[in-house]
Design a protein around this nucleic acid. Structure first.
Length: 424
RNA sequence: GGAGGGAUGGCCGAGUGGCUUAAGGCGCCUGUCUUGAAAACAGGUGUGGGGCAACCCACCGGGGGUUCGAAUCCCUCUCCCUCCGCCA
């Protein structure tokens, strides 16, 4: 949610930002119109309420029956008018809310302008894509051959885009999760175990509802939603709270499965485990003072990079252009690792500063130590990392000519003595 | 799933239709006093919105209703507590 003052004071800034995000800027005029209507109506109804309040007090003290009855009659008419005006305020506010709720965050001034992912900028590349003296296989061939990845049975159990990891494959993913969480704890994050189902209010707070409803799984019986990312319950953790300045920054890390209907991506990336309806992710999340949030963003990016680096994967950092930014993000860096079997760079992390956009929707503030009014804080989120694509990269980069996979050094403590995954 | 009891400011807690402008206490801030602190005393201490301002409006778990007027009465939902049932 954007600050309404931006529309009142600098509407052209908002229009420009929306153009850069490939959105129609006319919505700004609608917001301004509704805001003016709201204030005009509010002024009228509040004056009437003030009158009713003071006359109602007089009625309590009025002894003369005729005078008393006259005042009651007058206030009954005022009351009817108030009811009508309250209703129109409610309607105006409802429309203003739902209009504002569709408007994405403003990109920071330094974000490169572009229409789509094609204008994203590679900022740096670390490590060199591994070369092989044989033709590296894609994971969708490697996994089934080793008996650690089973597409057919995933489809049998649930349907398309579901798969089964078994044996060393399942264990390798669990090793990655445990290792990543421990790494983030060392980097200064607090581990959280969270609900995987949330209520609609929580999804609204983090920005998934109402706009991305079609991409979510919804349980009608209990009116609960499956989380599409740990960012949702991590935002919900402190929604509606006023934190103390000395608590900040609050850094969290959490493992959750993520559930996405991927309706908008139907037909894309159908091979392998790159894009499924259910996937695991280790998330990082930071609540920060506004003046510190850009430093925290750099820290989070460095922490995500360390995750790739310690796994021995070649990766690159990509700055998203205005047209490719997510809904709540003011700035985003993607981390991509090289997968030699698929022959592509895979997005394993997306590190964003949402500035006060989420905090305003979620009502998350902090009380300054100087005793001033509570202020909105900034929230940041980043994957550290998404599991399926990390698993792809590990399998494809560590494969050997005989089809076996060497287990990266850092994961071995969790692999029960298995250093090389061979056919089962 | 069943029966009963609850939800009031940062915390505790009073309040059954109009002197409530939410009592009182704790905590916190400021001042007086003090070498300093404590104690005592005095004053101040919620959030959001409207208005150039004076000031006004809303909020007592959420939503709806009755009334000139609701923390208070009615309906409904949510959550918490006690007990019973079921259960990994």
């Amino acid at each position: 949610m954007l600050d309404i003052n931006l529309f009142r004071e600098t509407p052209e800034v908002v229009r420009e930002a929306l153009r850069h995000r490939q959105m129609d800027p006319d919505i700004v005029d609608r917001v301004i119109e509704l805001d003016q209507q709201r204030r005009a109506t509010l002024t009228r109804v509040e004056a009437l309420k003030a009158e009713r309040n003071s006359v109602s007090k007089e009625i309590g003290k009025t002894k003369d029956p005729a005078e008393r009855q006259a005042k009651i009659e007058a206030m009954r008419r005022v009351g009817d008018e108030i009811t009508a005006l309250d209703e129109s305020v409610r309607k105006i506010e409802e429309e203003l809310e739902s209009t504002l709720a569709q408007i994405p965050n403003l990109p920071l001034p330094e974000i490169p302008i572009g229409e789509s992912e094609h204008q994203n900028q590679v900022i740096k590349t670390v490590g060199t894509p591994k070369s092989f003296d044989f033709t590296p296989l894609p994971h969708w061939e490697l996994g089934p051959k080793l008996g650690i990845l089973d597409f057919e049975r995933g489809v049998k159990i649930t349907g398309s885009r579901f798969y089964v990891l078994s044996g060393a494959g399942a264990r390798l993913q669990r090793a990655l999760i445990a290792w990543m969480l421990d790494l983030h704890i060392r980097q200064g994050y607090r581990e959280a175990y969270l609900p995987f189902m949330v209520k609609g209010d929580t999804l609204y707070a983090s920005g998934q509802l109402p706009k991305f409803r079609d991409n979510l799984y919804h349980d009608i019986e209990e009116d609960l939603w499956m989380v599409p990312t740990a960012e949702v319950p991590l935002t919900g953790l402190h929604m509606g709270e006023v934190l103390e300045e000395k608590q900040l920054p609050l850094r969290y890390t959490a493992y959750t499965p993520c559930f996405r209907r991927e309706k908008m991506s139907a037909g894309r990336d159908v091979r392998g485990i790159k894009r499924g309806h259910q996937f695991d992710k280790v998330e990082m999340y930071i609540y920060s003072k506004p003046e510190d949030s850009m430093n925290e963003l750099q820290k989070m990016l460095a922490d995500a990079e360390q995750t790739c680096a310690e796994l021995g994967l070649a990766y690159r950092v990509v700055q998203l252009c205005t047209g490719d930014l997510g809904f709540g993000a003011a700035i985003t860096y993607d981390l991509e690792v090289w997968a030699p079997g698929c022959g592509e760079w895979l997005e394993v992390s997306s590190v964003s500063n949402d500035t006060d956009f989420q905090a305003r929707r979620a009502g998350i503030k902090y009380r300054p130590e100087d005793g001033g009014k509570p202020r909105l804080l900034h929230t940041l989120n980043g994957s550290g990392l998404g599991l399926p694509r990390t698993l792809i990269a590990v399998m494809e980069n560590y494969q050997q000519a005989d089809g076996s996979i060497v287990v990266p050094e850092v994961l071995r403590p969790w692999m029960g003595g298995v250093d090389i995954i061979r056919p089962e």
